[in-house]
Design a protein around this nucleic acid. Structure first.
Lengths: 339, 339
DNA sequence: CTGTTAGCGCTTTCAA
DNA sequence: TTGAAAGCGCTAACAG
């Protein structure tokens, strides 16, 4: 069933059917109504590959995420997909844990003629991604904080986030703040660490190297890092982390060590994954508003699309502290909390 | 850059280029080599919408999941996508929390000319899905336990799973087993409940209505259900659940009531989501092997594809109990576990 | 072994 | 206000 079939039934040409479907004003209302009636009767479904073939536009955006297993990305994907569906676009989801996969996925996206690509978290390996630039695909990176020709960026304001978190801890009397960062060598890890340091110094606390260590954005790494941290001479009374998974690992590690949260040590995450509310204790965390992030990605995409030869723009999303149960006043270890 | 361009450079026709790309033996090796060289030099990327347009096959499969927020589906999606990428196919992911979305998503899949669709968990609303049958798209449902013309099914053997779980609890001395099921009215919820009941009776325990209640496959529902359960006259010493999210909710509820897991009550989940290992205490759960599930879905898809007019087949996946920390001997409430 | 060609469904230009 | 026709890139049937 295609436009020609519809056209035949309506006694018009396929051009007219196309015009009706696309809401062109160049069709007499009476004709349009007749065509629309038939369109509905037969439940016509247009075939976008014809359009894609003709114009090279596919109405699909690529989304690159590093790890679908991390609920933050899964939740973001859900919202992004919803947003794109609203504006009548598809999403080509692409999980790129490794550079090899990234390279393959870039090819997949090029084949499918994506109209733009959003890169999340995965390090932006310019060499692997070069083909997208060459094909002049509008690009958006998240948290890279760099705009270039044909590529905009949407960044979470980690500075604001960690600042709010540190303030919260200060009010609770904490002075020795630990930090479990992300994978070393990733730019976003360095950014998060810098933001933490800035926040510590802004609160007139001393920043101590030995209270800082790296994780892997996953639970296992967070737990390992926690053990490292708690072996040091000076122990933190509160720990900030690079993301919620890391925080979950830290909490688990503390429990394993027989320490209570927040009685012995307070913990703050980043992301505000659904699970954060659920863990025992519910995790205090710096929430990244996913819907706003998705909205900004779309804006950034559109901005880049307007003119691919122009330098992109940097967009920012402000996070917000969600205070829950994993933070409390310093030095109030309630032993045997569970009756 | 298309096949004609390549052909020109190689001094052959585009048909020959096509043959080389598709590995046809009807090309002299010398010619093929020349063409391949150029293909690589210019990093040729074929345009599948042309093929899709010509043959109505898109090399993409639709995947319908009810809730991307549930890590089980997110994790499955990751594996399914990987599997499909291996066989050079795309996945059109579709989140269908509501019948309206399902209907829209069916349309999206039809437009994109999917070669088949896998339906997970979402109730299979024949009316909304009818269009796929009419268009003769190969279908696979998960856990519907029904095969029909053009539609196969892959089911998890809940009977085996709950049986193993109940046996494990019996060995620990439990006799009063509670059950928190899924959303009432869904077939899969009824199936899980039936499997639980069967397992209880197979273990020569009494099945008691008042130890059974429904949840919503989410944490909140699991917690609510737990409260209901613990209000009843006879209280369970162990609780089985319809999935891990429900189990997480139950564990949280027990903690809120000041009860310890497994000291006061043992809890068993179903799915074996990544988080299950991480929660305090680590969740004993009936693992659904995701890779095998994905493999069976592909098999089922292929079986249905072989002949869409034939009745589909029912495939089964056996789950397996992962014993962790949330189950323990009955009546050994260790108070003040945390030092 | 290789080339020519038709046609998949759609949109848009041009002509009427 | 409508229609005719070209062409997007690819592949299979057919001709050589």
């Amino acid at each position: 069933m295609n436009m020609r079939d519809i056209a035949r039934r309506a006694g018009v040409s396929s051009a007219t059917v196309s015009r009706v479907i696309n809401g062109s004003p160049l069709v007499r209302e009476k004709t349009a109504a007749r065509v629309r009636k038939i369109l509905e009767d037969v439940k016509f479904i247009p075939n976008p590959s014809a359009t894609t073939l003709k114009y090279g536009r596919s109405k699909t955006y690529g989304l690159v995420i590093p790890d679908i297993t991390n609920p933050f990305y899964a939740e973001f994907l859900g919202i992004f997909e919803e947003l794109m569906t609203e504006i009548d676009h598809e999403v080509l989801v692409t999980v790129s844990e490794s550079p090899e996969k990234l390279e393959k996925n870039v090819r997949r996206m090029l084949m499918r003629q994506v109209d733009g690509v959003v890169f999340m978290g995965s390090e932006f390996d310019t060499e692997k991604v070069d083909a997208l630039f060459r094909h002049r695909i509008p690009l958006v990176t998240v948290d890279r904080r760099v705009a270039e020709e044909g590529c905009s960026d949407v960044a979470v304001d980690f500075n604001a986030g960690y600042l709010e978190a540190v303030r919260h801890l200060c009010l609770l009397g904490h002075q020795r703040l630990g930090f479990i960062g992300g994978i070393e060598g990733l730019k976003t890890s360095a950014d998060r660490l810098k933001a933490f340091r800035k926040a510590v110094e802004a609160a007139d606390l001393v920043y101590r190297e030995e209270l800082v260590t790296g994780g892997d954005y996953r639970i296992a790494g967070g737990e390992q890092a926690l053990f490292t941290l708690m072996k040091s001479r000076i122990k933190p009374t509160a720990i900030l982390t690079a993301n919620d998974m890391t925080a979950f690992g830290a909490v688990r590690g503390l429990h394993r060590l027989g320490l209570s949260v927040p009685g012995d040590v307070s913990v703050i995450g980043l992301d505000d994954v659904l699970m954060a509310e659920v863990l025992q204790p519910a995790l205090t965390t710096i929430r990244i508003p996913r819907r706003r992030l998705a909205d900004e990605c779309l804006k950034a995409l559109n901005y880049t699309k307007e003119d691919v030869d122009r330098k992109g723009r940097c967009f920012t999303v402000k996070p917000e502290l969600k205070v829950r149960e994993s933070t409390g006043p310093v030095g109030v270890a309630k032993r045997s909390k569970r009756v």
